[in-house]
Amino acid sequence: MELEKKLRSRDIVEKSYYEIVEQYHALLYYVFHETTNTSGIETAKMKEDPNIITSSGVSSSQTDQVGNSSVSTDAKRLEKLQRDFDMAVHQLKEVQETQKRQQNLATKQITVLKSQLGVQEELNEEKNKRIQFLQDELLALQLEVSSLDRQLEGYKR
């Protein structure tokens, strides 16, 4: 008896969605089943109906026309593409020549600048030598001054 009561209580909870799910499942099954049947029906109609064959013929002829026009269109497009390609090649060559000229100029400038740099370095070396010489002389003169100062002090005493 207790088991029965518990089982009924369980069913109340676990079967709350029972009817909704059943309807959903039936609808889902119907939709998929109908889809399959519709496909079959269409196939059968295609096979049975002679008018469709005629329209297929018309369609095929239209397809041929479309093919022809598309061929000529493709040829024109190809010619245009060829012209565009040639122009692009020409422009590319011009750009390359311009770049080469600029590169040559840059190379020359580099050479000039390098030589100037060399001259500057030589001048710097000379300046350094003279600075060193002058510093040495300055030091010697300072020593002489200090010596004279000491002599002067001796004379005063």
Partner: peptide, 8 residues
Amino acid sequence: LVWNGSLS
């Protein structure tokens, strides 16, 4: 009840 128990 046991046999007819179901889950959604």
